[in-house]
């Protein structure tokens, strides 16, 4: 425990800026994965344990597109679009068959696909770890804001994730499709009776969730090593985020992810040997005080 380090950091604007942006970066990537998870749970009532695989595929799709085209924008697009198509296919062919079934069956199907997807990646891209490399446009010295260090790439990353959060939040709240999705989440039978194709809604939501995870993977690809199974550790942290924020709540996912990011970033200064533990401790505190999570709704 090193509380002095934390105190001196809080007193220094440079340290405060660096550690806060560091927390935002960790949090925003987590948010993109967790929000897909929470969206799928909110509408489809399925805990998608294979969600980490979409993050992994997003990264691999982006790397391949980047190697083929040399364009980072296309790489991000490939990561997001590729995983959206994959999500839709996966939902229509497999997940749609286990809706309303025993949770154990859903879990088994998802877990089977975690293994299958890992092996598919191993077969296509090989078992060894890969690196995409930072696009030339971002191979620049970091910015210094109030003495704190902020890499320009991370500003892009935070911006894209924030934009995704805003579009998603507004889209669900204001647009017609958003209203239909919310209605389908609340009463799918009634939505179906009104002549709306719920299968399409479900497939679309799953594709959207997969796309967000894929986007996170694509954005992380330049700074993280790519390996089969890379989605697993992200998935665990995403679950912590959704549990803290409340399953099914988009705002909850955002706040939960940012809190985890800041806990990691400032926790590493004050509790270097207990940073991981801090996350779990925080989750326990939230669960004890608010079992439905910070923004979760009581299940009737």
């Amino acid at each position: 425990m090193d509380l002095d380090a934390l105190a001196s950091c809080l007193a220094s604007p440079a340290c405060l800026v660096t550690q806060t942006t560091s927390g935002l970066i960790i949090g925003m990537l987590l948010f993109l994965v967790a929000v897909g998870l929470t969206l799928i749970f909110g509408v489809l009532k399925v805990v998608n344990f294979s969600h980490g695989a979409f993050y992994m595929f997003g990264a691999y799709f982006a790397m391949t597109a980047y190697q083929l085209t040399g364009s980072f924008a296309l790489a991000i697009l490939a990561g997001a679009a590729g995983t959206a198509i994959l999500g839709l296919t996966f939902e229509r062919l497999f997940m749609s068959r286990v809706y309303g079934r025993d949770v154990l069956m859903q879990l088994l199907v998802c877990y089977a696909f975690v293994l299958i997807f890992d092996d598919v990646v191993r077969m296509i891209w090989g078992p060894e770890f890969k690196s995409m490399g930072m696009p030339a446009a971002f191979q620049v010295p970091p910015l210094f804001i109030a003495g704190g260090v902020v890499p320009p790439y991370y500003l892009l990353l935070i911006g894209v994730a924030l934009a995704a959060a805003v579009v998603l939040g507004l889209g669900l709240a204001r647009s017609r499709i958003g209203k239909v999705i919310r209605a389908a989440a609340h009463n799918p039978g009634m939505v179906s009776a009104l002549g709306i194709n719920t299968g399409l809604i479900y497939g679309g939501v799953f594709a959207l969730g997969g796309m967000l995870a894929g986007l996170a993977g694509a954005l992380a690809a330049p700074v993280r090593s790519l390996t089969p199974g890379m989605g697993f550790s992200v998935l665990i942290e995403s679950f912590i985020v959704t549990v803290i924020g409340g399953m099914g709540s988009i705002l909850g996912a955002l706040i939960g992810a940012l809190l985890i990011g800041l806990i990691r970033s400032f926790g590493s200064l004050s509790f270097p040997l207990f940073t991981e533990g801090l996350m779990y401790l925080f989750m326990v505190i939230v669960l004890v005080s608010r079992p439905t999570g910070l923004f979760g709704k009581e299940v009737a």
Binding site: A5, I25, S268, P272
Partner: peptide, 21 residues
């Protein structure tokens, strides 16, 4: 300064910034 990230940790940002501090 000592940092002990866990094995196979995907993100080292907080470790990197801690070292920079």
């Amino acid at each position: 300064s000592e940092s002990w990230p866990k094995l196979f940790q995907p993100d080292y940002t907080e470790v990197v910034t801690k070292i920079l501090q």
